[in-house]
Design a protein around this nucleic acid. Structure first.
Length: 152
DNA sequence: GCCAACGTTGGC
DNA sequence: GCCAACGTTGGC
């Protein structure tokens, strides 16, 4: 079982939005970066991921989700009305993938990016590397527990 | 709103 | 295959 971190802009899709969904489950779609796509395809049901709020007043980790389905072709890429439409992705040869996530836990307080940056145990975390913009990234077991310990 | 850093595109 | 130009991300 593997650990991940997934970014979302709360103005588009927040952890509150996930909580209000049926079964607190939703598609994690719209990823349009090849490296992030490759990580999505590595995910397996039972994996866990931090839900990270980006581009907002308080960027940081807002909670934890379970990966509940393996990667499958992202239907939003096929839909011309979707902001994530990409005509290069076809049913026969899908370019983009999504997984389904289910809310596991909301943190009472967001673990802020600034706090993550100052934790020595997280020096190698992709998120805090200078210039890193990846929206889906792996987290080591050590990093995972270090972040969990910050949830107080 | 600014801007640095990055990924992608497309001409050559 | 190179690389400049462009668009996007995302913190501040």
């Amino acid at each position: 079982m593997n650990y991940w971190l997934m970014k979302s802009e709360p103005s588009v899709f927040s952890i509150d939005d996930l909580e209000s969904r049926p079964q607190q489950t939703e598609r994690w779609d719209g990823v349009r970066n090849y490296q992030a796509r490759n990580y999505l395809r590595e995910m397996k049901p039972g994996d866990e991921a931090f839900f990270y709020h980006s581009s907002c007043a308080e960027p940081g980790v807002a909670g934890i989700v379970n990966i509940v389905s393996a990667a499958s072709p992202d239907p939003s890429a096929f839909n011309p009305r979707s902001p994530y439409y990409d005509p290069r992705s076809t049913q026969e040869k899908p370019a983009w993938f999504m997984v389904e996530v289910q809310l596991r836990r909301r943190f009472t307080r967001v673990i802020s990016l600034s706090a993550l940056k100052t934790n020595p145990a997280l020096r190698k975390l992709r998120l805090v590397q200078h210039g890193s913009r990846l929206s889906v990234m792996p987290v080591t077991a050590r990093e995972w527990s270090a972040i969990l310990k910050m949830n107080k």
